[in-house]
Each structure stands twice: as C-alpha cells, then as structure tokens.
Amino acid sequence: MPDDLKHLVDALQTVPQEAGVPKPDPILVADGVRRHFGGLTAVDVDHVEIQRGTITALIGPNGAGKTTFFNLLTGFDKPNEGQWTFEGRQLAGVRPHKVAQYGMVRTFQLTKALSRLTVMENMRLGAQDQRGEKLFALIFPFLWREARRTRSPSRRCELLASFNLDQKRDDMAGSLSGGQRKLLEMARALMVGRRWSCSTSRWRA
C-alpha cells in the first residue's frame, strides 16, 4: 500500500465497529434518507459516513435496498426525505449528471457498456470539460483537435492497461465478454471522477 494512503486506513483503526459511526475524514455524509415504494420502505438510512481514500463496501441480502440507496445518492432516483453531502456539498435534488461532475460517479448493476462504441470511445466519453462536446465548437475541428491531443492520453491508456483492456482498445464494446464490460465500465467511471465512484454489482461477491 502506498504510504500516502496508509495514514487514512490507520485513522480508521480507532473507529468503533458499529453502524452510522462518525469517521475522521468523511467524503460522504447522509442523514435520514428514506425511499418508499407504495407501502414498501426500500431504504431507511439514519446516518452514514464514508471515509475518504478507502474502498467501502455496502453489504446486505437481496432486496435490502443497496441499489436503491446508490440510485438515491447519485440522483437517479428521488428520496421521500433525507439529506446528504459529498465533499461538503449538498446533493439532495441535484441532477445525476451534475452529481457525476461533482466527482461522485456510479456504475450499474446491469453493466452499461456502450456496445456500438469502441472501447477507446467509451473511455473518451468519460473525460470532462471537453470543448468538442459543445455544440458550437463541433464543426470547427481546430477548436477541439488540439485539446484532444494534449488531454493526457496516457491516463486513458494507463487505466486500460491496469484493467487489462489495452489489447481491446479498438474493438466494439459490444464484443467484450461480460466481465470485460464490467471492467470497461469501471475504467470509464474512473475517467470522470478522481474522487469517488460507487458501484453496485453482483459481479464480485
């Protein structure tokens, strides 16, 4: 483990092992988040904090409400009540693409690789603040070509290499195996946010 992360984990050693306990350096804090589907209460979270710089797992039996909770946190679903902050920013009621722009990026339980784009195009889609994605720049390639060249391709390649997808960069995402699609989805999410990504998955137990 790199030394700069070690102190983050050490900080958790003193934290009591119980639900909803305060963390020394939380990146996400949620309070009173509830979601009802008719009579069914799918999510009822009094208080939760997630420590910065760590990998945190949310576990529970099928139907416990894990996916629904992720949907709420990332703006894909609206809670009946509740507040939460990410990096100190209130996120209740914020639209999903804004949540992603603020650095909280989700993946999906049923993998959403964009099948008819290549692996590389999937990765490029993850990058933020691309001038060529603006409507008025698009027919003037000289406005965005440059930006595209200098925007570190190494990051894309590094990510693809670390997910073992660098051989597949020019293949259609739809031709990947199920596991590779999940990897691509994760790598693509990491292109967006540098801070936190939350995934809901049945791919790894």
Binding site: T74, F76, R95, P96, H97, K98, A100, Q101, V105, R106, T107, F108, K112, L114, S115, R116, L117, E121, R124, L125, G126, Q128, Q130, G132, E133, K134, L135, A137, L138, I139, P141, W144, R148, R188, A189, M191, V192
Partner: peptide, 25 residues
C-alpha cells in the same frame, strides 16, 4: 465525427450511462 457526435451516439445506446458520465442528456 466530433466528440459531440460521440455523446449523441452514446445517448442512443443508453441515456443513463451517459448521465452517469456527467453529460446533460
């Protein structure tokens, strides 16, 4: 051919995936 078109084609495939990548679908 532009990055704009890439977002457009991605929306055809799956809007939610595009939203999750920070684009205003």
């Amino acid at each position: 051919r532009s990055p704009w078109g890439r977002v457009i084609k991605a929306i055809r495939e799956d809007e939610d995936a595009v939203r999750s990548l920070g684009k205003s679908v």
